[in-house]
Design a protein around this nucleic acid. Structure first.
Length: 269
DNA sequence: CGTGTGCCCTGACAGC
DNA sequence: TGCTGTCAGGGCACAC
């Protein structure tokens, strides 16, 4: 369930297990995910020591002492399993240290793994065009005003555009728009500065709360059969079609090119 | 360029 | 150990 908070949760779960550890063995159990694994990935990682972990947008970062960063994306169904008792058919990429075995499990294989020079991450093609981190100082009303200027596209579509802001996905965009009382179909360029400020606050609030809730799933992540999912009970509109909103309206759902949007037409304008 | 659509892949459900 | 249809957090190629 990987949007920014889930990737952040994943990275925080991996950190105590990987940081400072030497990678003793790497196993590729198939040739690709969304794309082929990088050439020589196993050799290039084996023997390296993990110096730190991080996150950019929805990508997890594992830095090594060889000057390379392992960049992983969880796609739709990816997750790391820590010390699984046995490997399953979707455990495609396995890293072993002296103490632990980590398996990147991804049933739908929309995820990816890359090895990028740490110093060149910012220029790496997938990162070069990314917008600011939504929890960082660069993401503010002025930034959105510039990104939305003269745009007639629905605000939801622009918030999902990683070039505008990096890390939001379908769920948290719905949630943030709800908190900001902005209709997802609203033409982005017509939103007032005051509402943009509210939207920035809403994005931050939703993500922060989700990361906080994700913290409670860290323990689960550390289990071999770790399942996710305490975030769902905090959703205000996502997955709640037909349920009452606090304003007295009913949550509606619409589908655009196969993707669901949930919102309350009564209080989101 | 901006905008909208469809596809990659597998599994979980609901309904029959 | 049914079957079929629908849906799922992302990202990208492509058409207009």
């Amino acid at each position: 369930m990987p949007e920014l908070p889930e990737v952040e949760t994943t990275v925080r779960g991996l950190e105590p297990v990987l940081k400072g550890a030497r990678i003793e063995r790497v196993t590729l159990r198939r040739a690709d995910l969304r794309r082929p694994f990088p050439e020589g990935l196993g050799q290039r990682l084996t023997g390296a020591t993990v110096t730190g972990l991080g996150r950019r947008a929805k990508y997890g970062l594992i830095d090594t002492d060889r000057g390379d960063t392992l960049v992983f994306h969880l796609g739709m169904s990816g997750r790391w399993r820590i010390d699984p008792e046995e490997l399953g058919k979707h455990d495609h990429f396995v890293i072993e240290t002296a103490k632990h075995r980590l398996a990147l499990n991804d049933a739908r294989r929309f995820g990816s793994v890359d090895l990028v020079p740490t110093g060149g991450l910012a220029e790496w093609p997938a990162f070069a065009a990314l917008g600011p981190e939504p929890l960082g100082a660069e993401f503010d009303a002025a930034h959105l005003a510039q990104a939305f200027e003269d745009r007639i596209a629905p605000v939801k579509a622009l918030l999902l555009d990683q070039r505008v802001v990096a890390g939001l996905g379908n769920i948290y965009v719905c949630e943030a728009l709800y908190l900001a009382r902005i209709a997802p179909t609203r033409a982005a360029g017509t939103i007032s500065r005051k509402q943009l400020t509210k939207l920035v606050d809403a994005v931050r609030e939703v993500l922060t709360a989700a990361i906080r809730a994700g913290g409670s799933t860290l323990r689960d992540y550390a289990r071999p059969d770790g399942e996710l999912g305490y975030f769902a009970k905090e959703w205000r509109v996502y997955g709640r079609e037909g349920e009452p909103c606090a304003c007295g309206g009913l949550v509606e759902r619409r589908v655009d090119s196969g993707r669901s949007t949930f919102w309350c037409p009564r209080c989101q304008k």
